[in-house]
């Protein structure tokens, strides 16, 4: 039960934060906002760590708002369905400028290069790759569906011209959606540019489907 409470708190704090952030809608939902805030305060005294978490959470959706309410005063499932502010990716805002997003397939290629190099260097026992390297490499390998990152990048370049951010492009490559609807559902930040993106996106997805390697091949 303790776990459950903790989880609810996370959710509650994030929701409270979100209601503060979504300023334009603050007026029409002030009652809800207050409630969410109250939940946050109730828990804030609990642990230091939780406070840190709540202060870190960025903008996000009503999804958790509903959950927050649930934690405080009984189930209210309808709110969960009203997902009006979907959780958006804020990669560009959260990271410093000298950062380049990488697709999983790019990462897999680079990490493989490093691992091969380490095999040669492994005579020196002082240098050892940490466990997180193996895990990250394994993950990149399994989740990358393309054998040739360059051509994938090339295919996705068109989206950049139409205003998609680097992180959004990478996510499309990582998730490898099949339809445009899937793209807009999974990367809600693209919805704003939907009118401009829908057409080029169709072609890009077609191209990606062709570049896709069958998922089983890396394990064969």
């Amino acid at each position: 039960m303790g776990d459950k409470g903790g989880d609810n708190f996370w959710v509650a704090s994030a929701g409270g934060k979100s209601s503060m952030k979504t300023k334009p809608r603050k007026d029409d939902s002030s009652g809800k906002t207050k409630k969410a805030k109250k939940v946050q305060f109730e828990y804030e005294g609990a642990t230091q760590e939780n406070i840190m978490f709540s202060s870190k959470s960025g903008g996000k959706g009503d999804l958790r708002n509903g959950k927050g309410d649930k934690g405080s005063n009984g189930p209210r499932k309808t709110v969960v369905k009203k997902d009006t502010t979907p959780l958006e990716l804020l990669v560009e805002q959260e990271l410093p400028k000298n950062v380049n997003c990488m697709m999983d397939c790019e990462a897999a290629e680079i990490l493989e290069g490093i691992r091969d190099q380490m095999v040669l260097l492994s005579a020196d026992p002082a240098i050892k790759l940490p466990a997180s390297f193996d895990k990250a490499f394994e993950y990149a390998k399994v989740s990358s569906r393309f054998a040739d990152p360059q051509s994938v990048m090339q295919a996705l370049q068109i989206l950049r011209k139409h205003g998609a951010a680097e992180s959004e492009i990478c996510m499309i490559a990582n998730v490898c959606p099949e339809t445009t609807d899937e793209v807009f559902a999974l990367v809600p930040s693209l919805k704003v540019k939907k009118s401009r993106l829908a057409e080029p996106l169709k072609d890009v997805l077609k191209e990606l489907a062709m570049l896709k390697t069958t998922k089983d091949s890396p394990f064969a």
């Binding site: 776990d3 459950k4 989880d7 959470s57 960025g58 996000k60 979907p86 959780l87 958006e88 990716l89 804020l90 990669v91 959260e94 990271l95 990488m102 990462a107 680079i110 990490l111 997180s132 990250a136 399994v142 989740s143 992180s167 996510m171 990582n174 998730v175 999974l186 990367v187 809600p188 930040s189």
Partner: peptide, 21 residues
């Protein structure tokens, strides 16, 4: 090369443990 999860990110994960929570 760094690896960081973001809120709002979609990713594919392997289930390691299932319980009633």
């Amino acid at each position: 090369v760094v690896c960081r999860p973001f809120k709002g990110e979609i990713l594919e994960a392997v289930v390691t443990m299932v319980n009633k929570m």
